[in-house]
């Protein structure tokens, strides 16, 4: 199965082949040569909730969370978020690019938290750097500001709401000049 993956801004082509006793995984960092790894299935086993992975003489306890196109891999107290697409998704993504409005049309929560205060209302035109709202997580208040000049289209939350990471908080539209 062929994938394209991205880890910390580095792009890789990935190929996974399953045989009876082994995984054959090939990785190609962008602009470099393919590296081929053959991993015996006895070296990559799921135990309870996590994976015991023996790789190049080292033992890793790996936990993979996620689905579809984004996985977070934890091991040895390090973690990486990896975007991974297969052929079909690559197609969808390229189609989306054609018709979209372009990124940055909404303000999203970077972490789970609670909305303490909202400073704007729909229809407001705000300048870059203006406070939009205050969100609290773990006894810390975080002020979220406008990254550029925008017009507020819709406010999707109200004061006191608890939000998940990635939730859309405010929708923007471009300022008519």
């Amino acid at each position: 199965m062929y994938f394209e993956a991205e880890i910390k801004g580095r792009k890789y082509k990935v190929d996974v082949i399953e045989t009876k006793g082994a995984w054959k995984v090939s990785l190609q960092p962008e602009g470099k040569n393919w590296n081929h790894y053959e991993i015996s299935k006895t070296d990559f086993q799921t135990a309870e909730e996590y994976i015991s992975f023996l790789f190049e003489g080292q033992s890793y306890l790996v936990d993979v969370i996620g689905q579809d196109t984004e996985y977070t891999v934890f091991t040895r107290n390090s973690f990486r978020t990896i975007k991974i697409f297969n052929d079909e998704m690559l197609l969808h993504r390229s189609l989306k690019k054609g018709g979209g409005l372009g990124g940055g049309q909404d303000l999203r929560a970077g972490m789970p938290g609670k909305i303490i205060e909202i400073f704007v209302k729909p229809g407001d035109v705000v300048k870059e750097g203006k406070s939009l709202l205050i969100m609290e997580a773990m006894k810390m208040e975080n002020e979220m500001r406008a990254a550029r000049d925008v017009k507020i289209k819709e406010i999707c939350i109200k004061q006191g709401d608890s939000v998940e990471s990635g939730a859309v908080l405010i929708k923007f539209e471009e300022v008519e000049s």
Binding site: M1, A5, Y60, V62, R80, N86
Partner: peptide, 17 residues
């Protein structure tokens, strides 16, 4: 630096597969 990319990528790729 503590851990190289392939460890993460292989685990993610096999899970995605």
């Amino acid at each position: 630096k503590q851990i190289d990319d392939p460890v993460f990528l292989i685990a993610a790729a096999i899970t995605a597969y």
